[in-house]
Design a protein around this nucleic acid. Sequence first.
RNA 1: GGAGAGGUACCCGAGUUGGCCAAAGGGGGCAGACUGUAAAUCUGCUGGCAAUGCCUUCGCUGGUUCGAAUCCAGCCCUCUCCA
Length: 407
Amino acid sequence: MKNVYDILMERGYIEQATAEEEIRDLLGRESVTFYIGFDPTADSLHVGHFIQVMVMMHMQQAGHRPIALLGGGTAMVGDPSGKSDMRKMLTQERIANNARLFQKQFSRFIDFGENKAIMVNNADWLLDLNYIEFLRTIGVHFNVNRMLSAECFKNRMEKGLTFLEFNYMIMQAYDFLELFRLHNCKMQLGGNDQWSNIIAGADLVRKVEAKPAYGLTFSLLTTSEGKKMGKTESGALWLDAEKTPPYEFYQYWRNVDDRDVEKCLALLTFIPMEEVRRLGSLEGSAINEAKETLAYEVTKMVHGEEEAIKAQTAARSLFAGAEESDDIPFTQIEKTRLDEGVDIISILVETGLASSRSDGRRLIRQGGIYINADRIESEDQIISTEDLDDGKILIRKGKKVYHQIRI
RNA sequence: GGAGAGGUACCCGAGUUGGCCAAAGGGGGCAGACUGUAAAUCUGCUGGCAAUGCCUUCGCUGGUUCGAAUCCAGCCCUCUCCA
């Protein structure tokens, strides 16, 4: 069987490692317990987290034991890594609630049965720490001069860093030590922005326990232009179907830049690498096949096969201009209102296609709104029962945003 | 605690001898053309509304004035230097 390190390397996950050869040997030799931390700062995981989850899945398939660490404690401090401003503090209840939601989502991807994987919350050991005792046993091992020169604080050296956030690194390092003691966890994985925090942890374990500990980081999901991927107009691309509907999720991947397709296939699907390379090398419009595959596979993993098929069918029919599909976002409007007729601007605002009535007028003026394939010419157009087609009205905004009105 | 600089729309950033400022320019975003549901390029739009006008907006509160992003007072916040 192939060494999982090589698999991760081939697919392009690995960015930095504390001791490349040693880690590779270790992973090839024994079942290793490792952890990745997730701070529950939102009520759903997003694609940025998903890449970490992918790594956990690869590792678990290779016989290693993942620990999903929920940062119920660290989220109360907030990671300053790479951020130019301090985040707003979250309440304890919010964090606990988010942690519960994260937990549910993890279970979809990782098998937590029979000691195959572990989920823990660092609130369990961080919240009750005694300050003086902590400083004396853990604090002594940290050199402030060195910490300040860490890459992750670089942004903050100009803008200012609070003592609260400065402690984040120490807390994360302590997590590693705690997991080493509790579960014999030898390795911490994470996004490349976590490098400083990870080596701090590995160092701490080595100093305190005199045993080897390793760190490994993965490339962040960025576009060919260097921007973070998974950003949409409404914020992040969430894994929660309530926050990002499967159709929208599918469309995001269907629309990625040509140059990013291969990378995404490698990082976000389990498609064999020969196939990934073939799809990635398709030229011209043929590369749409690769994008469809990408969108389908990722959606399937996150939302299940049924939703993936629905999203794909909906997208195909809409863009082929053929028959409609029901699996696109829709808004219900009472029939009595349609009987009387509703002005198009109101419809646009109610469906969320326009952010305000002014925005709606603008869209129409610029020719960006279509009802059942007909371009709207007048801002005063009235939508009524006559526009119904099989109980539905299809609205298109721009080239590819579809929405349905149902009664 | 002391000295200085500054807070402008989604972001950056002009504007501070008071009216010509819903506020230059850039970025981002949206729409149009082109196209492959891609990129690049070009064009338009980008506070709200019952829209040739009206309302709200330039850190907050009050003041001067016919009129304030621009002047005055107090307050809050940020940054730099000093302690």
